[in-house]
């Protein structure tokens, strides 16, 4: 990878993060929305602290997955075809663009996850086997979801039902990440969680390979 590649990837990531800094959509919309979801669950399933502590980790990752998709959807819908054409005409390497977008998405999702984890800890009292595992799982989940969101966003870009389609594309495909995350940090599997971490890492790597391999064909269809 040349310096030019990384400069382009960095520029794309900075553009996406600047956009978030100006609009604050993750901070002002997605995070409060996720917090509301974590507040609603106990009202629906009953306010039994033991139950809430047991399901807390799972609920955290479900909220992360469902609301993390919102970030991907939003990024798909705000990029106009003209902007995408301009990026292609400027000669931006499609792989650098994928890398930059996924990196920016991962940063935003990691921030979202950290806030949600704090909210879930306060509301549910998370029953985590080891916080060390959690520190590994959160970034992996963020990277995996960001890769999926970036690929799905490119797949659904400029289509009539694009924003509506992305959640349907991302959510079922994120199941290996959800399973890996919840099983790695769950108390019951403490000791055998390395295998789940390997699953998560494999999924993240495979998605990275797919993202890199398909970046150019997807850019050509915009």
């Amino acid at each position: 990878m040349s310096d030019r590649f990384w400069q382009q990837a960095f520029a794309v990531a900075r553009r996406d993060l600047d956009r978030e800094r100006r609009s604050g959509e993750v901070f002002w919309v997605t995070i409060p929305f996720g917090a509301i979801a974590l507040l609603l669950v106990p009202l629906a399933v009953g306010i039994n602290q033991d139950v809430l502590t047991r399901i807390g980790t799972g609920m955290l990752f479900v909220v992360v997955m469902l609301f993390g998709v919102l970030t991907a959807v939003r990024r798909t819908s705000i990029e106009t075809p003209e902007q995408r054409d301009a990026i292609a005409l400027l000669g931006v390497d499609p792989v650098a663009e994928f890398t930059g977008k996924a990196a920016a998405g991962a940063v935003l999702l990691l921030g979202f996850e950290l806030v949600m984890a704090a909210v879930a800890l306060v509301l549910y009292g998370l029953d985590i086997g080891s916080w060390g595992w959690m520190l590994v799982v959160l970034p992996l989940t963020a990277v995996g979801l960001a890769e999926l969101g970036t690929i799905s966003g490119a797949i659904a870009a400029s289509t009539d039902g694009g924003p509506a389609l992305v959640p349907l594309l991302v959510t079922p495909l994120a199941i290996p990440l959800l399973l890996g995350a919840t099983q790695t940090v769950s108390v019951e599997r403490n000791g055998g969680n390395l295998a789940w971490l390997v699953l998560m890492t494999t999924v993240v790597l495979v998605l990275a390979i797919i993202g890199v391999a398909t970046a150019r064909p997807l850019q050509e269809t915009r």
């Binding site: 999926l148 690929i151 797949i155 659904a156 594309l169 998605l207 797919i210 398909t214």
Partner: peptide, 8 residues
């Protein structure tokens, strides 16, 4: 685009 999704 559907080829990419078919692979994932």
């Amino acid at each position: 685009r559907s080829a990419v999704l078919g692979i994932i």
